[in-house]
Amino acid sequence: MGVMTRPITIFISSAGATNAVNVIDALRKTDIPFRLIGGDTDPLAAGLFMVERGYVLPRAADPQFIPKVLDICSQESVDVILPIYSAELPIFASRKHEIEARGLRICVPEEPVLKMCDDKLSVIGFFERLGIACPKTWSSEEAANERLTYPLFLKHRQGSGSKGALRVESQEDLHYHLTPDYVVQEYLDGDEYTVDIVSDLEGRMIAASPRVRNRIYGGLSTRGTTVYDEEIIQTSKRIVEALPLPGPSNLQCKRTKTGALKFFEVNPRFAAGGLPLAVAAGLNIPEILVRLLMGWELPEVQIRRGVVMNRYWSSQFLFQPEPGGRHEILD
């Protein structure tokens, strides 16, 4: 591993996303000499006003998304790109070789891995093949034609987070809510955990910090507590290294009231809700990722257990000095 020899420039995509703001805050807590450049589709995205320079981007699906990002990186002499939003990851992955050919450093899983992680039914199939305990899961078509035991849990088959997820108590409830874009899972009682993970650029796990999701709002953890659970950590290692998942990722699981541990979700990105808790507990995932990409020495990781996070709303105030002009932070 090398040592830091100069300030670097880091580009953060989707700068208005919760994940991005958390990453910016985490990087500000390090001794890495850097300047931050941000991009977002929203000209008033909060993260654009937390970086040295912000740019408005087309949407990730727009053919001009990657060319615009590359133009910005060239103009700002960017060293490292940190993709943030789930929908952007496959776009960056599909152009990774082109990006790296420009001298830029980026960490993103392979496209087939991203596709599988975005499909909850495929994730369950992967767990089963790996011998990882997981909830019984049915496609919407299977669930509509089987006799099932209630309660059950409905989730959107694709996408991250738990928005739109709901518990159903009867066959009538199931048929009322069930649409082709849902999967149906057995309902798991007990404590729910998210495991914040960072792996090296080949997908070998460096460290993992499990946390109990004490309170959830809108699919995000608003209160959590770090814990030490060797079974969760070792099972997480098996999962991320089997895929593999380089860089940041997070897994979700439940330990039922009978003590059974069951995994049910894989997110190949920075956690949206709990990253600040991992950082506060001693696992600064954005710092480790930047150091990996730059080939720098990694910090010693010592994760504290029993650290509690309470999340709350905060506000940012902007001012437009001239009509039609650029907004600025209101002092």
Rank of each mutant, 00 (worst) to 15 (best):
P43Q: 03
L201P: 07
L277Y: 11
N145G: 15
L251V: 11
V212G: 07
H156K: 15
I24S: 07
T194Y: 00
W313T: 14
R223P: 04
A165E: 02
V168Q: 09
M294S: 11
R211T: 04
R326D: 10
D181V: 10
A87P: 05
G125T: 03
A271I: 07
I197Y: 09
P112S: 06
Y228S: 13
R238C: 08
V113R: 01
V183F: 05
R167P: 05
L152P: 09
I37V: 15
N214W: 05
G161R: 05
H177E: 06
T256R: 12
D331Q: 12
M309W: 00
G190N: 02
E186T: 15
L130N: 02
I206Y: 06
I233N: 05
G54C: 02
C73Y: 01
G190V: 05
G164Q: 12
I91D: 00
L318Y: 03
Q316T: 14
E300F: 05
D191P: 09
L166W: 02
T235Q: 12
P83Y: 04
R59E: 13
I37H: 00
G259T: 13
R305K: 08
I124S: 10
V240T: 00
E76D: 06
S236A: 15
L298V: 11
P151W: 01
E230G: 00
A143W: 02
P323G: 03
T41C: 08
S221A: 14
T18L: 13
I239K: 05
L289N: 13
R211S: 15
T30N: 07
P299N: 11
